[in-house]
Design a protein around this nucleic acid. Structure first.
Length: 416
DNA sequence: AAGGCTCGCAACCGCCTACGC
DNA sequence: TGCGTAGGCGGTTGCGAGCCT
């Protein structure tokens, strides 16, 4: 089937929008809602195609757009989410209220991606370009597992999107009647299919990640210290497009327990907290309830992953990656459990430390100077420059992560 | 001061998918 | 079931501003 043109392009204007055009579009949408984008230009008196109008609206004119410099928290969130989701800008944008996918994409391409490259980190995989450095330690498996979790999250997002569309269909008539009476701004990247107003969707993989790796053992009622991970039961939260968010969506801080049981903040979402006047700090009760939902099984094996991300038992599962990896469900990973020797790694702060490093290097100066960390391992700070030094940068990068993990709690991070 | 270069961002392009008929 | 349409999404382009030589 050939691609149909979005509009009749003859005689239509292209290029930058003028203030007059903006005003026309804004006035029309505020009065009538956008309705059919295809029909909108004619009705609004614009010589533009509907697609151009939609983009102008969603990326620029919407009243709920935040413009200007990205905050450190936003940068951190973008990096973390990109590590998990890749170039799924719309998915990332759902976790950054008031930012559009286009803006996030541009910011990534013009700022964050360059930082990664400068550090010798592949901006696609978020791994050091020289993987040989990782071959004999736990980080390669760590990163692989992170990637694995991203696969999980991708499946979940797809399933959730489908459910959202179904839900939208069911409520379409209601929405239509509403839109004729009052104006509501569409959400950043999906004016129709996503909630118009509300807290950002949580990234369940992060929640799960934190739940598994950072929860003190005395809070984990369902697991023994050697229990294996199972995601059975998590997918039941997919029963509705919003149900996965219920106990997490308002969380701006996720209270976790780091090494040594120190309470700290792992991920901080800078989202709309409209549903929580307290900023949504997750308490122990919520965490435990969360955990019970997450880990009500200790089958020891991840069930089969199917095309829809949900199997007949209403659980999400995978077939690759972890089948040989048995990970203890306690506060830390040890490299012993990962096939190496004695170093301890806390996967719960893996992404955090990674992004801390990136952000602490947010200046465009020499990125290898001390790794930009608070590590007391000052010997790592060598000058950087050409590609020949990438190897050293990589060592510094991962050493810095290890040092951060071993020598400080996450709360020591300058980021928090 | 002027021309060239780089960077950032708005906007466009084209593919994909869902949906209605 | 197949086709046409609409909208979403990610990649890419083009242009203006600022910087450099």
């Amino acid at each position: 089937m050939g691609r149909s043109p979005c509009c009749d392009k003859v005689g239509l204007k292209k290029g930058p929008w003028t203030p007059e055009e903006d005003q026309k579009l804004l006035a029309y949408i505020e009065e009538h809602g956008h309705g059919s984008w295809r029909a909108l230009p004619a009705k609004a008196g614009l010589q533009r195609c509907g697609k151009s109008c939609r983009l102008r609206w969603t990326n620029y004119l919407r009243p709920d757009i935040k413009r200007g410099k990205f905050t450190l928290q936003e940068e951190q969130t973008i990096i973390q989410l990109h590590a998990l989701l890749g170039n799924r800008w719309s998915a990332i944008a759902t976790h950054l209220p008031k930012r559009t996918d286009n803006e996030i994409k541009n910011y990534w391409n013009t700022h964050l991606k360059k930082r990664l490259v400068k550090m010798g980190i592949d901006p696609v995989t978020h791994k050091p370009k020289n993987d040989a450095l990782l071959s004999n330690d736990g980080q390669s498996k760590n990163a692989a597992n992170l990637s694995h979790m991203a696969q999980w999250e991708s499946a979940r997002l797809e399933a959730e999107a489908r459910l959202a569309r179904q839900s939208k269909l069911r409520s379409n008539s209601f929405q239509n009647s509403l839109s004729s009476q009052e104006f509501t701004a569409p959400s950043p990247s999906s004016p129709h299919s996503k909630p118009v107003v509300g807290p950002p969707r949580c990234l369940d993989v992060l929640k799960a990640w934190n739940s598994v790796w950072t929860k003190p053992m005395n809070e984990v009622s369902v697991a023994s210290a050697s229990a294996n991970i199972s995601v059975t039961g998590l997918a039941r939260d997919l029963e509705s497009p919003t149900s996965t968010l219920g106990y997490f969506e308002n969380a701006q801080h996720i209270s976790t327990s780091g090494i040594g049981g120190n309470s700290t903040v792992l991920y901080e979402f800078v989202g709309n907290s409209s549903g929580s006047s307290e900023g949504g700090i997750m308490n122990n009760e919520e965490s435990e309830e969360d955990w019970k939902r997450f880990g009500n099984s200790s089958t020891g094996h991840l069930p089969e992953y199917n095309k829809d991300g949900i199997n007949e038992n209403n659980s999400i599962s995978f077939t690759s990656g972890l089948q040989d990896l048995t990970l203890p469900m306690d506060n830390t990973w040890t490299t012993e459990s990962l096939g190496s020797n004695t170093e301890q790694i806390s996967p719960g702060i893996f992404v955090e430390t990674l992004t801390d490093l990136l952000l602490s290097n947010s200046g465009d100066g020499d990125l290898s100077e001390g790794g930009g960390t608070e590590s007391d391992n000052g010997g790592e700070g060598s000058g950087s420059g050409g590609a020949s030094e990438n190897c050293e940068d990589n060592k510094n990068y991962w050493n810095s992560i290890f040092n951060l993990v071993n020598n400080s709690s996450p709360s020591d991070s300058a980021m928090f």
